[in-house]
Deep mutational scan, measured.
Amino acid sequence: MATDAALRRLLRLHRTEIAVAVDSAFPLLHALADHDVVPEDKFQETLHLKEKEGCPQAFHALLSWLLTQDSTAILDFWRVLFKDYNLERYGRLQPILDSFPKDVDLSQPRKGRKPPAVPKALVPPPRLPTKRKASEEARAAAPAALTPRGTASPGSQLKAKPPKKPESSAEQQRLPLGNGIQTMSASVQRAVAMSSGDVPGARGAVEGILIQQVFESGGSKKCIQVGGEFYTPSKFEDSGSGKNKARSSSGPKPLVRAKGAQGAAPGGGEARLGQQGSVPAPLALPSDPQLHQKNEDECAVCRDGGELICCDGCPRAFHLACLSPPLREIPSGTWRCSSCLQATVQEVQPRAEEPRPQEPPVETPLPPGLRSAGEEVRGPPGEPLAGMDTTLVYKHLPAPPSAAPLPGLDSSALHPLLCVGPEGQQNLAPGARCGVCGDGTDVLRCTHCAAAFHWRCHFPAGTSRPGTGLRCRSCSGDVTPAPVEGVLAPSPARLAPGPAKDDTASHEPALH
């Protein structure tokens, strides 16, 4: 009773807030009518008042009428009001819900409408889902798969039609296919003929059939049928067999079959498995989609049935006599038709004709302190090069084509190399640097090759510096006499390219 009084008091307290929050009759008014909170006449009256005075006034009048009803109607109103779709449509209802007392429970059932309790003993237990329907569909599909699609060729003596089998029958139906081979029951999904010589313990000319048996419980189990008994694959494991010639990621696949039913060829011909030897223990289905393919039931050349050999690369099948050149017997292992072999060759040939990528240039590290003349020119003028003790990398590039010797140069053309002071002394051009340390401070000019250098860098042994005729380390061993002091540049003949010694390969005349 306390809860009923509290709900009535809360409705009177929030009546105006609810009326202002509800700006549309749908969905709240319609939901109240659906849950029998508002009768039909009051529903029509509220809609009429909404058209006349507006939605807030109409709902305020409806809530005032609701306060005169019993506690069950008020409880049902609060339940409908706080439904998710009403809270989404009328956003101003959320503060009312947040301020609702926590001790007021809106989930209690309506009085007088409590459903009768059902004894637990009368409640049926839930049924577990079964796979009976899938099993029945598999039974119905198996006879259809064994139905012949056409008439065999005159040369083929193997013609068999499976008798119709009602689904209610649980007995196995067997077809006489000759040579002791028996087909599987209607619940078998796949059958492959297997030679009895590969099964340990088999006697006589009995041949087993590799099947997948579907049981009534819905589970499946792969086994071997020899005669009327089934054997699990673990009985046929043979770890010492060295003649297993397995197909790549293979499961067994029928390579020879008669049109209309699988079996042995007439005249004692023995149908073979995809792999010879003992049956392997793992009978998992292969991951290669080509091995799941269903080959055609007629020859791809003459479009006739009979004894066919199936290609492992495509769905086509052929007569042995229709092949070019014809085959006398079934080859062992994987067999592919000429079209598949030709496609494989065409895929391999473009790969062989692809040009080989060019090898990157060989990189040879230079000892610290040495650099090529090109690196000396590329440096920024007026700045010493940083990191001189790091190992430089010199790339061996292809030799350029031989060019004509340089033409003779006048001494005026070499004027930018040297600057003559007032006393006739050779001065260095701006930006000249030593080729060893890279520093341009207090550098000297070689009178023979006009290269800038430090005496301490080229002659670290402490050799005394002569007063005139300074030469760098590369030119100090040259027998050519030094030019007379005061000459602007060496003779043009000295600039012609010539053979250089091994220790002077990195010091070429550089223009500054």
Rank of each mutant, 00 (worst) to 15 (best):
A193I: 03
T130I: 11
G150K: 15
I74M: 02
G180L: 02
G240A: 06
I224Q: 02
Q189Y: 02
M194A: 06
H14E: 00
P126L: 02
I209M: 07
K235G: 12
F82I: 03
S153W: 14
F230G: 05
S249I: 13
P254C: 13
K159C: 12
T3E: 01
R203F: 05
G218D: 08
R110N: 05
D76A: 04
P176V: 15
A6S: 03
I18A: 00
L106T: 09
R190Y: 07
L122H: 04
G260W: 12
E51L: 03
S187R: 12
G150W: 15
G218R: 12
G178Y: 15
A142Y: 12
F215H: 07
K111D: 01
G260A: 07
L175V: 05
A25H: 00
E17C: 00
Q213W: 00
A121L: 11
R174Q: 03
G197Q: 04
P101V: 00
S168Q: 04
L67Y: 03
S239I: 06
S153T: 07
C223M: 09
A5I: 13
G201R: 08
S185R: 08
E17R: 00
G251P: 01
Q173P: 11
D198T: 15
A271L: 13
Q189E: 10
Q44N: 10
A271Q: 06
M194H: 09
K52F: 02
P129E: 01
G204F: 01
G208D: 03
A5D: 09
T232Q: 14
K111Y: 13
N244Q: 13
P252W: 05
P266S: 07
D70Y: 00
S99L: 05
P125R: 07
R79L: 02
I211P: 01
F236P: 03
F59C: 00
G155P: 01
G242K: 07
Q157M: 04
I74D: 02
K120N: 13
G208A: 02
S196H: 10
A264F: 10
S217L: 05
P148L: 14
L13V: 05
A31P: 01
K245P: 11
L255I: 09
Q173D: 10
S64V: 01
G218H: 10
G155L: 04
D70G: 08
F43D: 00
W78F: 04
S99D: 03
I96R: 02
K42G: 00
H14F: 05
K111S: 12
D70S: 15
S99I: 07
A61C: 01
D238E: 06
G178E: 04
L13R: 14
A193L: 03
D238Y: 12
P126T: 02
P129M: 05
A6C: 07
A138I: 11
Q225N: 07
I74W: 04
G180Y: 05
G260D: 07
T3A: 11
D84G: 08
L273G: 09
R110I: 13
A170F: 15
A138M: 15
K222C: 00
T68Q: 00
A265K: 06
L13Q: 03
Q173W: 15
L273N: 08
V20M: 05
F77H: 05
Q262C: 09
S185P: 03
C223N: 04
A193Y: 11
P143K: 03
R139P: 02
I224M: 11
Q212H: 15
H30N: 04
G150S: 15
D36L: 01
V188P: 05
A33L: 02
A5E: 14
G197R: 10
G228H: 00
S64D: 00
K245S: 03
P163M: 08
A193K: 08
E88D: 03
R272W: 08
V256W: 14
V199C: 07
R127F: 08
E270H: 15
S107Q: 02
